[in-house]
């Protein structure tokens, strides 16, 4: 006699977050009612998406193996962004405003915002916009960027426990969603979501970054935090019901294994990390190498039974 495996059914769903102005190109993420790809237990109305990462300046610390795959376009942000869409099939981009960082050019905020506006216009896909990682500069540039893209319904980041108010206030004013980041800690993730919601931003406009790590660097910790958050969301924790974003490219291409043992290994490293994160519940993967992105997009199609 065949044994029926137990099927978990949950009553609650992950929030659906829309990115981009309404229209055919809008990207929707979230909405799951099951752990990843277990279609017999629930649904995944929106497939996870791959966002290719572009900077507002030529990257100075990306490995050559990543840079060369974009050809000359990487030298000019707008051309690079356009190539990501037309050549490499990106349906959404993540623009990092790196140029304002004191260690990466310290360019004026206005310049970065001008570049961002051009990218938005020329690339024609929904945008995720993140700061440079320097709180002071980001608190200057992000409100300006947010205002410049008012109505574009972007996903802005990155809000942290110690710096979330400026970004939340601007996102609220300009109609964007935001990324809340926590240091591999389910409680801090939830606390930040509460603090952001308390400022009046709809919880359905928040995407969580649980911290990304690369394959070989403690990925299982991130995996289990994501899994716990998901299970809590499925049983009704509204403050953990946000989709996940993971900055895979940023982490993978820092590692020795990806950088120093040939391009193929680096690409595979980014694919392997991404696939593991998809199985943990990632909704948005921000990736760097176009070949890796292509393979992961294919994997998503396959996993979604398309």
């Amino acid at each position: 006699m065949a044994i029926d495996l137990v099927k978990e059914k949950y009553n609650d769903a992950i929030n659906t977050v829309e990115i981009g102005p309404s229209g055919s190109k809008t990207v929707k993420v979230g909405g799951e009612t099951t752990m990843p790809f277990l279609f017999a237990e629930g649904g995944m109305p929106n497939a996870p998406v791959v966002a290719l990462e572009v900077l507002d300046c030529e990257p100075s610390d990306w490995p050559e193996s990543v840079k060369k795959s974009f050809g000359d376009s990487i030298k000019t942000p707008v051309a690079w962004a356009k190539a990501c869409v037309s050549e490499f099939g990106a349906k959404i981009l993540c623009v990092r405003l790196q140029s304002v960082h004191p260690d990466y050019g310290n360019r004026p905020a206005e310049e970065a915002v001008a570049t961002l506006k051009s990218i938005s216009k020329e690339a024609g896909v929904p945008l995720i916009v993140i700061g440079s990682g320097d709180d002071e500069k980001d608190n200057e540039v992000l409100p300006k960027a947010s205002q410049a893209l008012k109505g574009e319904n972007c996903l802005f980041g990155i809000a942290t426990q110690n710096n979330y108010k400026t970004l939340t206030a601007t996102a609220l004013a300009d109609g964007h969603s935001i990324i809340g980041e926590s240091p591999i800690d389910i409680n801090i993730a939830k606390q930040l979501n509460i603090l952001i919601s308390d400022m009046g931003l709809d919880p359905k406009r928040i995407v969580m970054h649980p911290t990304t790590t690369s394959l070989g660097y403690g990925m299982e910790y991130v995996y289990s935090i994501m899994e716990r958050a998901r299970l809590a969301a499925f049983i009704g924790d509204k403050m953990l019901s946000m989709p996940f974003i993971l900055f895979v490219g940023q982490e993978v291409w820092k590692t020795k294994e990806a950088k120093e043992f040939g391009e193929a290994q680096g690409v595979n490293w980014e694919i392997a990390t991404s696939v593991a994160m998809l199985q943990a519940g990632a909704d948005i993967l921000v990736m760097r190498h176009p070949s890796a992105a292509k393979s992961v997009m294919k994997y998503i199609d396959m996993a979604m039974n398309k």
């Binding site: 800690d185 389910i186 409680n187 801090i188 939830k190 606390q191 509460i194």
Partner: peptide, 13 residues
């Protein structure tokens, strides 16, 4: 530790 971090909020996470 989990209990502790959850309590690092007013009144609680």
């Amino acid at each position: 530790m989990d209990e502790y971090v959850a309590a690092l909020f007013f009144p609680h996470t």
